[in-house]
């Protein structure tokens, strides 16, 4: 039996190299080795919720696919609940859940309810346990109104709720989520986050999630691993990263007419494009509300928005400024 604090995922010097054929002439092609994952080490303990973030092409999805056993590593070792995923894939599948945000594992032409019923047979879940889990998830995710709708007619947010349920109905010990909030609106995103927090808290499910949305991580994960070019460049508390690199936000304002860069205390104009200006500020120096008030004192505002730092921005700053204090 696994209890909180035991290592459930152990990854050592993990590597994955793809051979890509590149066209170099009319007919000639040369082999090129692309290293998607280049020596990754980490351990995840039971009950943890870890954010695995990095820019596009950093190796996040490749790592997750090796953890599930879909891809065979080129080097290094993986142990998930003590099993080697690529050799024991089918056995491991019963104990893990996976959500690929970009695609669905539900049956496209059938009502959502039917997909859950099919999965009960695929995972051989006892009928009463299945019914109990399903009832709980339907309530948590508010799926009642669209349970009998064919999956192809569901909105993205509804489908994602279905996919989350599909990944969790068999009581997996670990769930991997690859971009679970991609493309969702603010309300759906919040619902997905609440749900995941609940599952982790109430069921003790270990969660490893990749995302582009720092807000997902902020809401859910104390620990974050940042990967870039196939290597883990940071593994630790989210708070540390946030204080050091995630403090900079950008206020975007649309003025009534083009003008010179606005000069206000606590912010600096980084870009001007016609009547639109971008002001960078630190959340530690000034609140967004105060800043808006200061800008409004200078010019007539038509519209405004606040941009949060994204993963790419954080990674860029880690490179520029370095991690050492």
């Amino acid at each position: 039996m696994i209890s909180n604090g035991d290592a459930v995922i152990e990854v050592r010097r993990l590597e994955k190299t793809f051979t890509v054929m590149q066209k170099t002439g009319r007919l000639r092609r040369t082999r090129q080795q692309v290293q998607a994952v280049a020596g990754v080490d980490f351990t995840v303990e039971a009950g943890e919720m870890v954010g695995y973030i990095g820019p596009n092409g950093a190796g996040k999805s490749t790592t997750i696919k090796m953890l599930t056993g879909i891809l065979v590593p080129s080097g290094g070792t993986i142990r998930v609940v003590g099993l080697e995923p690529s050799r024991r894939r089918v056995e491991l599948a019963r104990r893990i859940g996976v959500v690929f945000g970009q695609r669905t594992q539900l049956w496209w032409d059938l009502p959502l309810r039917d997909s859950f019923e099919l999965l009960r047979h695929v995972y051989r879940v006892a009928p009463d346990r299945h019914a109990q889990n399903l009832a709980a998830f339907i309530e948590l995710l508010d799926m009642g109104p669209f349970l009998d709708t064919p999956v192809r007619q569901l909105s993205l947010g509804q489908r994602m709720r279905g996919d989350l349920t599909a990944a969790l109905l068999h009581d997996p010990e670990i769930v991997y989520l690859d971009e679970p909030t991609i493309g969702l609106d603010v309300v759906s995103k919040a619902q997905v986050r609440e749900f995941l927090a609940n599952v982790n808290r109430e069921r003790g499910t270990t969660v490893l999630l990749t995302t582009h949305d720092l807000a997902d991580i902020e809401r859910l994960c104390r620990r974050v691993m940042i990967i870039d070019h196939g290597r883990v460049i940071y593994d630790g508390e989210l708070e540390t990263i946030k204080q050091r690199f995630g403090t900079e936000r950008t206020l975007v304002v649309d003025l009534e007419e083009p003008g010179p860069p606005i000069e206000v205390e606590g912010a600096e104009v980084v870009k001007v494009e016609g009547p639109r200006q971008w002001l960078r500020f630190k959340r530690t120096d000034v609140t967004a509300a105060d800043l808006v008030a200061r800008v409004a004192a200078h010019a007539h505002l038509v519209d405004l928005s606040v941009e949060e730092p994204d993963i790419e921005g954080v990674v860029r700053r880690i490179y520029v400024e370095g991690l050492d204090p």
Partner: peptide, 10 residues
Amino acid sequence: GTFDSLLIRP
């Protein structure tokens, strides 16, 4: 990419 979802089932 739908082949992936077959490989995550037991």
